[in-house]
Design a protein around this nucleic acid. Structure first.
Lengths: 340, 340
DNA sequence: ATGAAAGCGCTAACAG
DNA sequence: CTGTTAGCGCTTTCAT
């Protein structure tokens, strides 16, 4: 199978060449030779290492010391900028001794259970599962410190970091109500629906307690992409308008972009005739026209908190079993005007 | 250090419980028990595996058989959707026996050399380096099949997949010339400049051979972000207009978004007064206003080709030493009108 | 059909 | 200071 690229040098090769033992090589290769080795031998070994282009084999090393140093991240769709920014936040605070890797799913937008299982079988120091659904959680048990990001349900033995939607939803409900909206529609996706449903339900509660409501059946699109939302909205938007809907809230900004495009194609004026709102506050949401009102989930900040939790869990200290992260509303032009 | 989460079960534990040898456990755990083991024993072992929640330790497994099965991807800035889509393409064609992981750099936008070194030390089946710069390439030697994506310079022993900018640049030059532009400005970034410079130079050649040119000093912004471009363009845009510049080409769509925003803030009409062009054709480029004209690099397709190359290199067959991938122009509203 | 044993390449005591 | 030794957990002949 694997092409052998002229077999990599081992510590033994180095030891032979430098005429020392592998133990010495190991010490030096790991910078632990602090006064335990003659400058002379040290040089010899270094030379040999250089000449043979030797590098410690991390697999063997990890096995030997029984310690891992990479933490992995799995998400439903790493293509969504939300997760990229989250990861970026994590990377920025993660202990330098740890290295971060994103497992890439193999089957389109679905949460790739296979990837999770690989992760669990793997030699990981820590694991972060973003938006795992119930089925996934039921199928697994942790093999390393694990953080669940905004899971619908928890899991014994795993920490979790929740999105506290309250602040954002209250603000959004008040914003919409204040603008005169009474009938709101919602757009979600078909698979991995848990997180988005939660967003929907939280908002719903707030709307109802203020005298408005999500009044028509949700639009459930198959994939969390702009295109998917656009395509599916084309049919439904006119009906919604007829039914008196004046605002549509999307579970994700990407979906909202699609709605914005659909509205334009159908010559439905935003925000005059229809207001549109997303969730996530992607970096592009201020840039589309009209710029999108959205519930800011602060992807980067979530990542930062997750990274800190991971540091504690992996490197010692008391693992925080549960934290919550608050959201807030960013009101922009797509809901700018008060209703007549 | 590592919290021990009640130590993971080993093959030995399973063997003990099921009263068989570890060899048998290994066979069964890997589904290689094809008629080599009594149904009875098989069951017993399976039960034990289940009861102990045993999972093969991939580190030990990899070490024992000397074969790797994960391929890694390193890029200057995984936050850029371009790389996410590229990865997605790779994932879609990669041999199912291989798993894909994205190494996340630790220091902002810079190409994280440390990540690359980790990758090289690691137990990888293959490695993809996106847009490596010369310094990086000089500092490393491959330890596994490696693909360089659009590197400025090649590296002995590594395959490469180049972006052939010719088609896109020719089309872009013709497009701009046809619209009446004679004086074009360029926006690039400070670090990791190689790929963007290449884009600039290729375009330059085409423009000059058609009687126009990149006529003012480039705007070099520190980071490849919308904000960075926006901030820095504010000063320079008016001067460009005064100097007779009628079009600005950006090395990346993200930069172009920034220019678009700057133009709006400065009340410079696009495309009437200024045309703007990007590179990459990010999924958002059709959605900003005015929608962005861009040289399509087809991130996903590049990923697909890289994935196929990797399959061949890792799983046998003749490794293609070098391929090229062609680009093309997507003309949209931001360059829609002919000059006066 | 199953087990014993020899590594994979490295690290970490422990001797000397 | 440096070498010897005993594993880490698994796979894989090779006996039985």
């Amino acid at each position: 199978m694997n092409r052998d690229q002229t077999r990599r040098a081992t510590a033994r090769d180095v030891a032979l060449l430098a005429e020392v033992s592998v133990a010495t090589v190991s010490l030096i290769a790991n910078g632990k030779s602090a006064g335990r080795v003659t400058p002379k031998t040290h040089r010899r070994v270094l030379d040999a290492i250089q000449k043979l282009d030797y590098r410690v084999n991390t697999t063997a090393s990890a096995l030997a010391r029984g310690r891992r140093d990479t933490v992995a991240f799995v998400s439903p769709d790493p293509t969504n900028p939300f997760f990229a920014h989250l990861l970026d936040g994590m990377a920025s605070v993660l202990n330098p001794a740890l290295s971060l890797t994103a497992l890439w799913p193999r089957h389109g937008d679905d949460y790739d259970a296979a990837a999770v299982h690989r992760a669990l079988a793997g030699d990981l120091a820590g694991l972060v599962l973003a938006c795992p659904d119930r089925a996934l959680l039921e199928a697994i048990s942790p093999t390393c410190p694990t953080i669940l990001l905004d899971p619908r349900d928890g899991h014994p033995g795993m920490s979790r970091l929740d999105l506290d939607l309250t602040a954002g939803s209250v603000a959004l409900a008040e914003h919409l109500i204040g603008l005169g909206h009474r009938k709101v529609a919602y757009v979600g996706i078909g698979n991995e629906t848990t997180a988005l449903h939660h967003r929907r339900n939280t908002l719903c509660d707030e709307l109802i307690s203020r005298g408005a409501s999500v009044a028509v059946p949700d639009l459930i699109v198959p994939r969390m992409t702009v295109h998917s939302a656009l395509e599916n909205a084309l049919d439904v938007l006119p009906a919604w308008i007829d039914a008196g809907v004046t605002a549509v809230v999307c579970g994700d900004d990407l979906l909202a972009y699609g709605i914005l495009q659909a509205a334009e194609q159908l010559s439905i004026a935003v925000p005059t005739t229809l207001s549109v709102v997303g969730h996530n506050n992607l970096p592009f949401s201020a840039m589309v026209t009209p710029s999108l009102t959205t519930v800011d989930l602060s992807a980067r900040d979530i990542g930062i908190r997750a990274g800190r939790m991971l540091n504690e869990m992996v490197l010692g200290g008391d693992p925080p079993p549960r934290e919550a992260h608050s959201t807030h509303l960013i009101a922009r032009a797509s809901t700018g005007l008060a209703r007549a």
